[in-house]
């Protein structure tokens, strides 16, 4: 059963084809990884899927609905959420508040009851806080709950972003380099976490440079080079594909 399908997605920046005619699909419980050398268009692809960029061509279909170029906040309502390669944490808010922000769709009601602190608003805030604390515990961040998010280490911030995204209880979760900058222990934690999220029935889309991680947890891999899909399949198939080896050895000699 396909939950998310990407159909011939493409975009040009100033006449250069950053991404061209990429198609693949993801089902609940799957981890689909998008790999490729630097500049292959992975993040651009994510930006199109998540509504940050308007695709020049192609469609994004979520649960049977065409959601191409839909604003991210409407995608969130339909169950899609993402994290960012370059960290988009709410720096001046506390760690706890960051995660509560992920509960926005469940928590928000009318402004007037927020201004007057009516019981309904208080109840909503209390529920969101309880949910957020639970998520912080799951991600091992509970002791940092009251700290300003900007003071956290890079690895913790990565986890904080994942916690915030999980708060939405998404059906599709896009993770853009969740393990970048993390040490071996942290990477392993993230490994387990992703597996756990997928096992709960979420379709996970992953961009990641750590090939060991990718090969271990992906159910399906899509390989991009120069904005085009050059291969796809399960990890074993993809790792033997000559086009993939060429793409990595040819373009990215800082190979992992």
């Amino acid at each position: 059963m396909t939950l998310l399908s990407i159909e011939g997605l493409g975009i040009c920046f100033g006449g250069i084809k950053a991404v061209h005619d990429v198609s693949f699909a993801a089902s609940p419980g799957e981890v689909v990884s998008v790999i490729g050398p630097n500049g292959a268009g992975k993040t651009t692809l994510f930006n199109m899927i998540s509504g940050v960029y308007r695709p020049g061509s192609g469609r994004v279909v979520l649960n049977g609905e065409d959601v191409t170029a839909m604003s991210p906040h409407l995608l969130a309502r339909r169950g899609m959420c993402r994290t960012f390669q370059n960290l988009q944490v709410f720096q001046t808010m506390t760690v706890l508040e960051n995660v509560i922000a992920g509960f926005h769709l469940q928590e928000s009601g009318d402004v007037l009851s927020d201004l007057l602190n009516l019981p309904a608003a208080r109840r909503r805030a209390k529920d969101a806080e309880a949910g957020a604390r639970e998520l912080l515990r799951r991600l091992g961040l509970e002791r940092a709950a009251e700290r300003e998010a900007g003071s956290l280490s890079y690895g913790s911030l990565k986890r904080l972003e994942i916690a915030r995204a999980m708060a939405l209880k998404p059906k599709v979760l896009l993770l853009d380099e969740p393990a970048a900058g993390c040490n071996a222990v942290e990477t392993e934690e993230i490994d387990h976490l992703i597996a756990e999220i997928a096992a709960s029935g979420v379709a996970v889309l992953l961009v990641e440079h750590d090939m060991k991680l990718v090969m271990r947890i992906s159910s399906h891999i899509v390989v991009l080079d120069h904005g085009e899909k050059v291969a796809e399949g399960d990890p074993a198939t993809v790792s033997r594909n000559p086009a993939v080896i060429a793409a990595y050895l040819g373009a990215d000699d800082a190979a992992r």
Binding site: H73, E97, A101, S108
Partner: peptide, 28 residues
């Protein structure tokens, strides 16, 4: 009251990062 409510938190969040605010469903 507003500051620590859903609305106030969302306002401070979009101040920090509009794109992240959108992805968690905030109508910026």
């Amino acid at each position: 009251n507003l500051r620590d409510s859903a609305t106030g938190r969302a306002l401070r969040a979009l101040h920090g990062s509009e794109v992240a605010a959108r992805t968690v469903g905030m109508d910026v």
